[in-house]
């Protein structure tokens, strides 16, 4: 099996990119103390907007820009609900995911006059990169990719640098870790959380655009098909660290790309489709078990509640 060819690695990068954008956003939110699992809906929102605007304007980049703007606005629901009003972020996320599913399906009919799938001839997809043509390894890896794929990889590095090497990154980590302490030193916890949630929205917009204008050139109802949840699992696996998030997403991408290969050999698609989810879950369980064992030695009572990550942390209510 030609698993380790450059073409395979390129396929892994393509499969990973949308998930990586969403997971990076969610990881930053986790660092700021906001549990952001509305990724499925935000990806879908980005994917739909990108296709619709690309179709109307004829420009894929206009579609990307619109996807970023729309999804950022959409993520305001989470910012308001879970940060400002302190509603349960899980329920807000379930609502947002369902809203995006319904609304994109609805608008697909109303605005684009299509049911199920919208893939007209003439829909502008994102162009493939050609700057790497002729360069040995890079050319093979990135030649057939859109600009968003290397951007996702760069953003993972950038997010890591931001968190660890800048003042605002340091403050953000403090906000998520101990909001009262951050507030007592004059950092506005809600402002940091708001900005991070909106930033995650923008990233999901990019992820959605890559999915619908990069990986394919089409919008299909519910086309995210669980990628948002895989991103959530990746974030958990990586404990919110951007570079590890990158690793986890590549793992998912590898499982998906490998699944496509196996289909080529005649394995039914229904079974290979399941692979990414199972791989993600198994790795997640294995890593959590290790963390868990360490924790139990220190504090048995904390270990009981460790299965319930603090959803959103807030500064102490001032009387």
């Amino acid at each position: 099996m030609d698993v380790f060819t450059l073409a395979f690695v390129a396929a892994v990068l393509t499969s990973s990119a949308p998930v990586l954008f969403a997971a990076l956003g969610s990881a930053l939110c986790g660092r700021a103390g906001v549990f952001n699992i509305a990724l499925e809906g935000q990806l879908l929102c980005g994917a739909f907007t990108a296709v619709a605007v690309s179709w109307w304007t004829g420009s894929a980049w206009a579609g990307v820009a619109a996807a970023v703007v729309t999804t950022t606005v959409f993520s305001g629901v989470l910012a308001l609900g879970a940060v400002s009003w302190r509603a349960d972020p899980i329920i807000v996320a379930v609502g947002m995911n369902l809203l995006a599913l319904g609304l994109t399906g609805f608008l697909l009919r109303e605005l684009l006059d299509a049911t199920g799938t919208f893939a007209p001839t003439g829909l502008a997809g994102l162009p493939d990169l050609d700057v790497f043509d002729g360069i040995p390894v890079l050319g093979a890896l990135l030649g057939g990719q859109t600009l968003l794929v290397p951007l996702a990889l760069l953003l993972a590095v950038a997010a890591s640098l931001w968190l660890n090497r800048t003042s605002t990154g340091l403050r953000l980590r403090g906000v998520g870790e101990h909001p009262e302490a951050a507030a007592s030193l004059g950092v506005s916890v809600t402002r940091y959380q708001h900005v991070t949630v909106l930033l995650a929205g923008a990233l999901c917009g990019l992820g959605g655009a890559q999915l619908s204008l990069g990986n394919v050139t089409a919008f299909t109802e519910n086309m995210t098909a669980g990628r948002g949840w895989v991103a959530v699992a990746a974030v958990m696996l990586a404990a919110n660290r951007p570079l590890l998030v990158l690793g986890a997403c590549l793992l998912f991408g590898a499982a998906e790309a490998w699944g496509f290969r196996l289909q080529g050999v005649g394995l039914p698609q229904q079974l290979t489709d399941a692979a990414p989810y199972l791989v993600t879950l198994i790795v997640l369980v294995a890593s959590r078990l290790r963390v868990r064992r360490r924790l139990r030695d220190v504090d048995p009572v904390a270990a009981v509640s460790a299965a319930h990550p603090e959803a959103v942390v807030h500064p102490e209510e001032t009387r």
Binding site: W85, M96, G102, F106
Partner: peptide, 16 residues
Amino acid sequence: QLGQVLQAVVILVLAL
């Protein structure tokens, strides 16, 4: 899909 939209709005308002 309007049905799904309505369900989602109910859930979001309930989160409050």
